[in-house]
């Protein structure tokens, strides 16, 4: 069977969930091979996890370049491995850096690229990717027609399924090339202990109606009771009430959880573009005319500072 390369996203020495989703999708297309770059001592544990989710082979490459030079070392490694393996397709998790690595790799391989797929299936002429476009108002199916397809897939596109495989580790020495920016310092993000926004099954977001940075405590309380991630609308982020890393919307994260709870968010196009594909949408807003209510499965017209704490109590009482 043809090899499907999966670039494994990892942080703090652990595999991130979207990589397991990619391995699950890769099995539809061929034999998954994981690519683990710059993981240091954690590579063995990451390789084992990849094998548990279907990796027949695991290519491991290391070097300080992965940490000190921007994007290009990963492109060097992925391109070299894809060529040597004669890979039939390359899957990468959608995200700022993942998309950049995928694009440069595609160009070097002479391959077309599709970004932000929400599904990938095997087709008669190779993989068919589904994208959700124009603020999720259309679904587009497309295929790469030149070269081995390079496809980036959004987190939460499929439920990861274990399928133990050999996971034979192959250490690769990468010939680093090219002109790359230098990373002069790196400050890991401090974990909040909450799930990753793009990976969470439930997201609770606050917007302008939260009124102040302090107001986000009611949003966080509900999120913690539900085991959910916390999001924020652009209005709340621009006001400085919540960090940009939590922004949901066109210029922030695009999320697609099982349940999305919008509190004090009017539902401008900028925000809808980031959450419209959520399975179930719930909103709490004082304004009965807020456009967010057009999208909801269940809505409460009311003050979020009354409704959310009452809901939180109910969840805790469970």
């Amino acid at each position: 069977m043809s090899e499907i390369l999966v670039l494994v996203d990892h942080a703090d020495g652990a595999v991130r969930k979207p990589a397991l989703e990619l391995l699950t999708l890769a099995r539809r297309l061929g034999a998954p091979s994981a690519v683990v770059l710059g993981a240091g001592d954690a590579a063995a544990a990451i390789a084992a996890k990849a094998a548990e989710f279907g990796a027949e082979k695991v290519y491991v490459a290391d070097g300080e370049e992965f940490a000190t030079r921007l994007v290009v070392p990963k492109v060097d490694a992925l391109t070299q491995i894809a060529k040597a393996a004669g890979a039939a397709a390359v899957l990468v998790t959608s995200g700022g850096e993942g998309k950049e690595v995928a694009a440069r790799t595609a160009l070097r391989l002479g391959s077309g690229i599709i970004t932000d797929a929400v599904d990938v299936e095997a087709g008669a002429d190779g993989p068919v990717a589904t994208q959700s476009v124009f603020a999720a108002s259309y679904q587009v199916k497309s295929a790469v027609t030149t070269g081995a397809p390079v496809i980036t897939v959004k987190p939460n596109s499929v439920a990861p399924e274990a399928a133990p495989a050999a996971g034979a580790v192959e250490n690769v020495t990468v010939a680093f090339t090219g002109n790359a920016a230098t990373v002069t310092s790196r400050t890991p993000r401090v974990s909040t202990g909450r799930p990753e926004l793009t990976e969470a099954a439930i997201v609770v977001s606050g917007g302008r109606g939260v009124g102040a940075a302090d107001g986000f405590s009611v949003v966080e309380d509900l999120a913690d009771a539900l085991g959910a991630a916390v999001g924020a609308s652009r209005a709340a982020v621009d006001a400085g009430w919540y960090p940009h890393t939590n922004q949901v919307g066109q210029t922030g994260k695009q999320v697609s959880p099982q349940l999305y709870i919008a509190a004090g968010i009017s539902g401008a196009i900028q925000h809808r573009a980031g959450m419209q594909t959520s399975k179930t949408i719930v909103a709490v807003n004082k304004d009965p005319e807020a456009p967010i209510f057009e999208l909801v499965d269940y809505g409460v017209v009311g003050d979020l500072f009354n409704v959310l704490p009452q809901l939180t109590d109910q969840v805790k009482a469970g």
Binding site: N179, A181, T182, T184, R186, R189
Partner: peptide, 11 residues
Amino acid sequence: DGDAATELVEA
């Protein structure tokens, strides 16, 4: 500002 870290870069 990435998902996992904030990096200072120069070229």
